[in-house]
């Protein structure tokens, strides 16, 4: 515990730099450090109980809670898009069901909370980032291409036809970070899961196997999330008279 306390020195270093450069971030740094400690310890003790109980419903409830938090966070990026929380919730849930369901069905991972919950966390976390980027980009593209959308609508295009380019651009833009980080994985950064396993004493090759699994699942999760979200949100760019709202 004392060795962990020493790591607070990193926070003090960041605060000292902030004070020296007058960035005004000291309060933010304290809040972030306290929140990180409280949240991580809470989740640590909670996971200990859930792993010990090894109960299917408890595991499902835990995953659902993760999806809710992810949907709430990502949907904040999509102001102006009505009903975005539920749309992100459905997209992230679909991603979790597809990817985690496949891993379990193919027996790539055992149906234990100690496997399902951490891997769900990575899949849902990545889906959340992709969904947030998608919504942000969708608003930006819809505003930037408003002229094109109006031309298409005035020629009698349906909302789906008029929104096609915008949704396509937002989907591509939100998938690029995931694809790029997958390309440089192992070269620029050693991913968290693999690093954690190696530190815990696992065989690095075994750690790589799990990491490859995660990389593939994350690639699929970005694709599933953004494509499902595209189908669920394009109609919200228009009102009942097929007039653009953004």
């Amino acid at each position: 515990m004392w060795s962990l306390a020493w790591t607070l020195a990193f926070v003090f270093l960041a605060m000292a730099l902030s004070g020296w450069q007058r960035l005004g971030l000291s309060r933010e740094l304290v809040v972030a450090a306290v929140r990180a400690c409280v949240q991580l310890f809470l989740i640590g003790y909670l996971l200990k109980v859930v792993f010990h109980l090894n109960n299917l419903w408890l595991t499902a409830a835990m995953v659902t809670l993760m999806v809710c938090v992810a949907a709430d966070n990502a949907s904040r990026r999509g102001q102006g898009v009505a009903g975005r929380f539920w749309r992100v919730f459905v997209a992230v849930s679909a991603t979790e069901v597809c990817t985690q369901g496949f891993l379990l069905a193919a027996r790539v991972i055992p149906p234990k909370p100690s496997y399902v919950i951490p891997i769900s966390g990575m899949i849902i976390g990545n889906a959340m980032v992709a969904a947030g980027l998608f919504l942000h980009r969708l608003r930006h593209e819809a505003a930037a291409r408003r002229g094109e959308i109006l031309v298409l609508l005035s020629l009698g295009a349906s909302p789906k036809q008029a929104a096609r380019t915008v949704v396509k651009a937002a989907t591509k833009a939100s998938m690029i970070p995931t694809i790029d980080s997958s390309k440089t994985i192992g070269l620029v950064q050693l991913p968290g899961m693999m690093t954690g396993q190696i530190i815990a004493g696992a065989d690095p090759v075994q750690a790589v196997r799990y990491q490859v699994l995660i990389v593939f699942a994350i690639l699929a999760s970005a694709a599933v999330t953004t494509v499902v979200l595209g189908f669920l949100t394009y109609s919200r760019l228009f009102n009942a008279y097929q007039q653009p709202l953004l």
Binding site: G147, L150, V151, L152, L153, S154, L155, G156, T165, Y241
Partner: peptide
């Protein structure tokens, strides 16, 4: 206008703007 199927109305009533917008 609100009783028309929207796509059909917009085919019947074409609009050309002051600033032309070309699609890619």
């Amino acid at each position: 206008v609100r009783d028309w199927p929207v796509s059909q109305l917009r085919r019947k009533v074409g609009l050309v703007w002051q600033q032309p917008v070309m699609l890619p």
